[in-house]
C-alpha cells in the first residue's frame, strides 16, 4: 500500500521521485482505450497507427496523465494532491514499449496558504529515450 504521508517539510529541491514502470502490452493498450474512453483509432488500431507513421498503437494523453498522476501519488502518498500537470507531446509511447516515469522536485513554495512543490517528471522508454518531459504541481501536508 502507498499510504505513507509525505510532509512538505521533508522534501527539498532535488528530492527524487522514484520510478514506476509499465509494459505497454496489447492488453494494456486496449485496457487504456476502455478505461479512458478515448477510442481514437491511433490508440488501438495497428493499421491506422502504421499509416500515421507510428510503429504501433500509441497510448492517449489521458493514459499518460493517469500514469504520471500515479507516479506522483505513489511517491507523495494519498495526502499529496495533484494540482496541475502539464504534458507536452514529443515521442509517442507505443505498444511493445516499456515506459518508466520518474522525477524530482524543482521548487518549493507557498501559495494561498497551500504548501506546494513543483516537480519535473520524465517518461523514458526501454531505449532510454525521454518521450515526455512533464511538469507537475503537488500540494503536500505541512507539519506546521
Amino acid at each position: 500500500m502507498v499510504n505513507q504521508i509525505l510532509y512538505w517539510e521533508d522534501v527539498g529541491e532535488g528530492t527524487e521521485i522514484p520510478p514506476v514502470s509499465l509494459e505497454l502490452t496489447h492488453n494494456r493498450i486496449i485496457m487504456g482505450v476502455c478505461a479512458t474512453r478515448d477510442n481514437f483509432p491511433l490508440h488501438h488500431d495497428p493499421e491506422f497507427a502504421h499509416a500515421s507513421g507510428y510503429k504501433g498503437p500509441a497510448v492517449a494523453g489521458a493514459f499518460l496523465q493517469g500514469f504520471l498522476g500515479r507516479c506522483v501519488t505513489d511517491w507523495s502518498g494519498p495526502t499529496g494532491k495533484l494540482r496541475k500537470l502539464t504534458l507536452p507531446f514529443r515521442t509517442p509511447n507505443c505498444q511493445g514499449d516499456t515506459i518508466t516515469a520518474s522525477g524530482k522536485v524543482t521548487r518549493k513554495f507557498l501559495e494561498n496558504g497551500d504548501h506546494r512543490v513543483d516537480c519535473e517528471l520524465t517518461v523514458t522508454n526501454q531505449d532510454g529515450i525521454a518521450t515526455v518531459n512533464a511538469q507537475a504541481t503537488v500540494g503536500l501536508p505541512s507539519r506546521a
Binding site: C34, G69, R70
Partner: peptide, 16 residues
C-alpha cells in the same frame, strides 16, 4: 467501477 478500471490500467494503488 470506471475508477477501478482506470486504476487497473496504470496499476494505481492510491487507496483514495
Amino acid at each position: 467501477p470506471m475508477i477501478r478500471h482506470w486504476c487497473e490500467m496504470v496499476e494505481d494503488a492510491n487507496p483514495l
